[in-house]
Design a protein around this nucleic acid. Structure first.
Lengths: 205, 205
DNA sequence: TTAGTTTTTAAACAGTGTTCATTTATTTTT
DNA sequence: AAAAATAAATGAACACTGTTTAAAAACTAA
């Protein structure tokens, strides 16, 4: 009978409404300042009811960060058209950095905050497959670069980590405001300039 | 008269005791889980009294992170003996990474957490001179490298940021546990390997 | 000893995540 | 249609949080 199915749909819909409310508040106030009561107020439910849909606050923000990975991954789709792996690698870096600077709060949640990771390690079923997927994409591209003769003498794994670290380092220093004093005058351009310098180095390898 | 001086000393001593208690708790539980009441309990004072010595919680953790910069700077002192700027740059990177991996919580406070930065921007007198000092050290070394013919075609500022970003990226991905799944089997060696790969690249420039 | 000053305190405020017995709403069975 | 069974939502409570403030205690100066 269709009643069970409709109830299933209803449940799923409310779950989604919680997520939308959480995302709205999170984008305007940040994770820490978004409380369960805030979310409950916005969807006009009691705070306790949220716990019938999510184990705890971390699970909500884990669910949200999954959406961020989907966004990032869909931006990466244009890379399929770039046949040269070295070109693809550079374009990948640019997309990554653009995503981070255009969605700093989401990036923060995905790659800096501990909240979603707490959930990954506490509910040990999942494997942070989101992060796994994006990193594998990088790994495969680096692999191709090596096969085509780039990065002689380097090993795939360490190099992938290095590339990821470089772009992550730049955007996370920016997002967590460590550039604002140290590089005050060039705040807005330094990440782009740093990325260009990085690409220059890659070209000369 | 010496009474005023003794009172001054007493005040300074209690301030120090608050800082020591805060550091003890912070190193075993983290910033978020260290409360003003916890600190007050440890020094056997009431919670309110702490507010006569520090404006708010952020100021306490700003004061703590200053100590971290002193630690890091003192580790850098051995670099004065390294005359070749390229050698010095690499050694600097190694010291930075070692410091971060040996004092992950302090590093987190210094370069990842927003708490101490909140204080920097809210009490606008200070200029995050700690971070400024360490970055200037890097900047000067890169400058010397360029003068000696390294990094041809590169500009000091962007390159300094790039180098900082790379080492920061590696240790912060590690500290915030983004390696644990993506690079599970090589967790403990990946930062060292990544740094070696980075040094290799620098050598070939 | 008294008056004045500084330091410390306890209580209160407004908030937090989370749990749980109870109520409300819905569905199934009689 | 009424009663029983199931599911969902609630509100109060718990144990916390950072911070403010009026009152109390401690200390110094006259």
């Amino acid at each position: 009978m269709g009643i069970a199915e409709r109830k299933e749909r209803d449940k799923e819909e409310l779950r989604e409404r919680i997520l939308v409310a959480a995302k709205t508040l999170f984008l305007e106030k940040g994770v820490e300042k978004t409380s369960i009561r805030n979310i409950a107020d916005l969807i006009e439910y009691s705070p306790g009811s949220i716990y019938h849909y999510f184990k705890d606050k971390n699970e909500i923000f884990h669910a949200l960060h999954q959406g961020g990975f989907q966004q990032l991954m869909s931006r990466m789709e244009v890379l399929a058209a770039v046949s040269n792996p070295m070109e693809r690698l550079k374009k990948m870096g640019a997309i990554y950095v653009d995503f981070a600077l255009e969605n700093p709060d989401m990036y923060d949640l995905m790659f800096i905050k501990e909240a979603p990771m707490d959930h990954v390690f506490n509910s040990n079923d999942e494997q942070w497959k989101e992060g796994f997927g994006t990193f594998n994409f990088l790994r495969a591209t680096i692999q191709e670069c090596i096969q085509e003769g780039y990065f002689r003498g380097h090993e795939k794994e360490a190099l992938s980590f290095l590339v990821w670290s470089t772009v992550h380092g730049m955007v996370s220093l920016r997002i967590r405001r460590r550039c604002e004093v140290v590089l005050a005058d060039r705040q807005d351009t330094i990440v782009k300039d740093g990325l260009d310098a990085f690409f220059n180095i890659l070209d000369r390898l």
